[in-house]
Amino acid sequence: MLETGFFYAFAALTLIGAILTVTLRNAIHCAISLIGSLAGVAGLYLLQKAEFLFAVQIVLYIGGIMVLFLFVIMLVNLDAAARERQYHRHWLAAVICTVGSGALITWFLRQGSGTMHLGQSAPELPSAGNVEALSDVLFKQYLVPFELASVLLLVAVVGSVIMAKKRI
């Protein structure tokens, strides 16, 4: 019961943070809401007894990436951005689409959740074995995607430099 309560609390934190991130006008406020959203995800990891992921989420995302975000915000001219109209005239259509597809997916999930037999859940691990279990999966079963992710990140880094530089 308590766990369910925590789940809903963290889920609400994640969703509200995400919504505020895209709706708030001031970029600093957006960044702070994003921290809230990421913290909610970290809480969800904790509920799944993935302590290592929880720690990594906080250290990497909330710590590292947010600092980066704030740097970018400081370097970018904020006043001009804040004065601009944030929304298109079609925001009502967007809301209707989002709510509609959300309702549709919820309906399908409610209909079908009975028939969904998730694969056997992983055996509960002693908290000390968490990192070992993760690395076991990462470097054995998912070795190829793990290595391929480095190519993906390389492309992203090179791409962002190309986009940001005026003259290479």
Binding site: Y142, V144, P145, L148, L152, V155, A156
Partner: peptide, 13 residues
Amino acid sequence: VTIFVGLETMAVS
């Protein structure tokens, strides 16, 4: 997972 990471590599490029 492999397919998805491959797809994203292509898409980001």
